[in-house]
Design a protein around this nucleic acid. Structure first.
Lengths: 179, 179
DNA sequence: CAAACCATGTAAGCTGTTACATGATTTC
DNA sequence: GAAATCATGTAACAGCTTACATGGTTTG
């Protein structure tokens, strides 16, 4: 799945500039793209070529000119089609598991230190997510149902972090027997 | 983190060919790389250039010749250094959440169908993981501690799937009110 | 008799990342 | 006075994927 669909989705909410899209995508955890310039401006160009979006240039005195993108009827159509596609299986890219796989090379205390570091990192991710939800784009939807959906997405992430923390606790208990 | 470290880890267990490595990596869930030829044979070349592995060619009558790679002392050193690095934060790339984010475009029954499909996909991943653990490389380690580590990695994945299923159930209960 | 397995490798292409370029305005 | 914000875009590079190439052997 491409960033183009995420952009269409965001534009279905309201017209935005490339710069706006970049900030929203970079600030969200679940829209996993980095949201760098190259990705976004290229995607907008393609979406424009396909007629899924249009743009209007606004000249400003105190800032650079900006292009505000608006979704078209055919763009909305495309978005709805994509919404109904078979969901992709989710991927967890947890490099820590690969690192841990060869952790038998380490001493008990080194292994404990590693697990503690991991726990700390996940806690950090958890708190970051809570903070993001309070200020981010996905706080209030256009309908109660959309708000509920966005709340569920937020909870999905939090549950993931909590599960990870519970697992880390278990791992420490099992692996670091003698302290 | 690069596939090179994963390869070093596997070779620390026993000498293997590129083809062996490919199968192990493709068959494991947590070593997330696709394990395609280009990745593996290129990585082995680099590891060889840096002196972390050596190889010996075996000619066979009924199959093509093979290069068996063995880790060197300096390779083991490198592996241990990497084992102690600060763990990378884990990433969840769940495209379904992006898809769901614009699910308010769908009717109740379409949304329910989408969630059901997701549930089914995750269940499939869960059973696949259980099957893999029974036959895979990471079944029994060289020490009880290593076996415990590999068991914990397996449990980490299973817990992740279970959390996802619990969440999907909750999502259905909240979003699909009238059936 | 087709498909899959064994085994190594290369080529072309797509995606994504970091960094560069510009330049006024606002905040620390 | 340095750094961040606004705003668009390009260039170079790194990583990863799909497909190609070869060819004997085994399984269905």
């Amino acid at each position: 799945m491409s960033i183009k669909y995420a952009i269409l989705g965001l534009l279905s909410y309201k017209p935005l500039t490339g710069y706006d899209l970049k900030k929203i995508i970079q600030d969200s955890t679940f829209m996993h793209w980095s949201g760098n310039n190259n990705q976004i401006y290229k995607a907008l160009l393609e979406l424009n070529n396909k007629g899924f979006v249009t743009n209007e240039v606004y000249h400003q005195d105190s800032s650079p000119s900006k292009k505000v993108y608006t979704i078209t009827a055919s763009g909305l159509d495309q978005l709805k089609k994509w919404s109904q596609l078979e969901p992709e299986p989710f991927e967890i890219k947890n490099m820590f598991l690969v690192q841990l796989a060869w952790g038998d090379l380490l001493s008990d205390s080194e292994l404990e230190a590693l697990l503690n570091q991991y726990e700390k990192a996940v806690k950090g991710q958890f708190f970051m997510e809570e903070a993001k939800a309070k200020r981010g784009f996905f706080k209030t939807g256009r309908t109660p149902r959309e708000t509920a959906i966005w709340q569920l997405i937020h909870e999905n992430l939090l549950m993931g972090y909590e599960t990870e923390l519970a697992w880390a606790k278990k791992a420490k208990a099992q692996l670091v027997i003698g302290k």
